[in-house]
Simulated scan of single mutants.
Amino acid sequence: MKFNTIDDLKAAGFEGFIPVAQLQTDSTAIPRTAGVYMVVYTGGKYARVSLPRYGRIL
């Protein structure tokens, strides 16, 4: 599967699409059940991701 757009994700059955900024102020929107979750970066060519649990930055 290739996901090039939000519409591709929606067509595959993903739903929700809540901005991280909103989740940072109201975590009640984060599901408490197991499932497949995805973080979508739409800000530019590359995102810098910090994984402090693993001690590295991608």
Rank of each mutant, 00 (worst) to 15 (best):
R56N: 01
A47G: 11
F14V: 04
T42K: 13
S50W: 09
V36L: 15
V39A: 08
N4Q: 15
A21N: 14
D7K: 15
G16L: 08
L51I: 02
G43D: 10
T42Y: 04
Y54L: 14
D26M: 02
F3C: 13
L23S: 00
V20G: 01
V20E: 09
M38R: 15
V20R: 11
Y46E: 15
N4F: 14
G43E: 10
F17H: 07
A12K: 11
P31A: 12
P31C: 03
P31F: 01
M38S: 06
Q22R: 06
I57D: 07
R48L: 14
R53D: 06
L58K: 08
K10T: 04
F14C: 09
L9I: 01
R32L: 11
Y54S: 04
A21C: 04
F17S: 02
V20D: 03
T33S: 14
V39T: 09
I18V: 15
D7N: 15
T28L: 01
L58D: 08
D7Q: 15
T42S: 11
A11T: 07
I18G: 03
V20Q: 11
K2P: 03
I57E: 00
A21F: 02
Y46I: 08
F17V: 05
F17W: 12
I6P: 00
V40F: 05
D26E: 13
G35I: 02
P31H: 05
Q24M: 04
A12T: 09
I30F: 13
G13I: 05
V36N: 06
Y41R: 13
M1K: 14
Y54G: 01
T28H: 12
F17G: 03
D26L: 03
P19S: 05
S50N: 12
R32V: 08
K2M: 10
V39E: 14
A47L: 10
A21H: 07
T28G: 03
G13S: 10
F3P: 05
V36K: 13
F17E: 04
Q24N: 03
I57R: 02
K10Q: 14
P31D: 07
D26S: 08
M38Y: 13
Q22G: 00
L23T: 02
V49M: 05
R53H: 13
G43R: 14
Y46A: 13
S27A: 12
F14P: 05
F17K: 04
F3G: 07
S27G: 04
S27C: 06
T42I: 05
I6S: 03
P19L: 00
A12C: 08
